[in-house]
Amino acid sequence: MKAQMQKGFTLIELMIVVAIIGILAAVAIPQYSNYTSRARAASALAELASIKTAINMCVAETGKLTGCSGGTNGIPAVADFTVTKNVTELTSITNGVVTTKTGATDASGTNLTMLLTPTQDADAANMTWTTTGTICDGGTRGFKDGQGGCAP
């Protein structure tokens, strides 16, 4: 009689494959979470572009930031803003300064805050927007230094 060959994998081989997949998942899942948080931070800034434009128009018409608040001079009221998964709360728009809570989160799951502050030099035609708040975290789960209006 002929000896039959065994087919298939041994238990040790299967356990090694499962261990390798577990190690890859342990590295990949946190990196993916960081990536999605940074993407939400960038999307939140993009979704606020219309409010920034309305504030720019207000300054162009009135000549000053004072009075360019939510619900006045063509700037939408805070209550009229539709929240999304990227901008979870529009806290305030006061004298051109926009305060929000974003869908980007830190490692503990707390939403990152973003404060957009406009400045305009006396003879400048353009307005400069500075981003501050917990969203400027060096690029871990928000903006890197020098990106998104965060200080370099």
Rank of each mutant, 00 (worst) to 15 (best):
M1L: 13
K2M: 00
A3I: 07
Q4A: 15
Q6P: 03
G8C: 01
G8L: 08
G8E: 12
G8W: 05
F9A: 14
T10D: 09
T10C: 12
L11D: 01
L11E: 03
I12N: 13
M15T: 05
V17L: 14
V18T: 11
V18R: 03
V18W: 07
A19S: 13
A19G: 08
G22A: 11
I23V: 15
L24M: 15
L24R: 06
V27I: 15
A28T: 13
P30S: 11
P30F: 01
S33L: 15
N34E: 13
Y35W: 13
R38Y: 09
A41I: 06
A41E: 11
A41D: 09
A42N: 12
A42K: 15
A44I: 01
L45C: 05
A46Y: 09
E47T: 02
A49N: 10
A49K: 14
S50V: 11
I51D: 07
I51H: 05
K52P: 07
K52L: 06
T53F: 09
T53D: 14
I55S: 03
N56I: 01
V59C: 02
E61C: 05
L65Y: 14
L65K: 11
S69V: 05
G70I: 12
T72P: 15
P76Y: 01
V78L: 12
A79W: 00
A79M: 04
D80L: 04
T82G: 07
T82L: 03
V83T: 15
T84E: 13
K85E: 15
K85R: 08
T88L: 07
E89M: 01
E89P: 06
S92D: 15
S92N: 12
I93K: 11
I93N: 03
N95P: 12
N95V: 05
V97G: 09
V97M: 03
T102N: 04
G103W: 00
G103D: 08
A104Q: 05
D106A: 04
A107R: 01
T110Q: 11
L115D: 08
L116P: 01
T117P: 11
Q120I: 06
A122M: 12
D123R: 13
A124C: 05
A124L: 04
A125F: 07
W129R: 09
T132S: 15
T132W: 02
T132M: 00
G133C: 12
G133I: 04
T134Q: 00
I135H: 01
C136F: 07
D137R: 03
D137H: 02
G139W: 10
R141K: 13
F143R: 05
F143T: 10
K144W: 00
K144Q: 13
K144P: 00
K144M: 02
D145L: 06
D145I: 02
D145G: 04
G146R: 10
Q147L: 10
Q147P: 01
G148M: 01
G148Y: 06
G149C: 03
P152N: 07
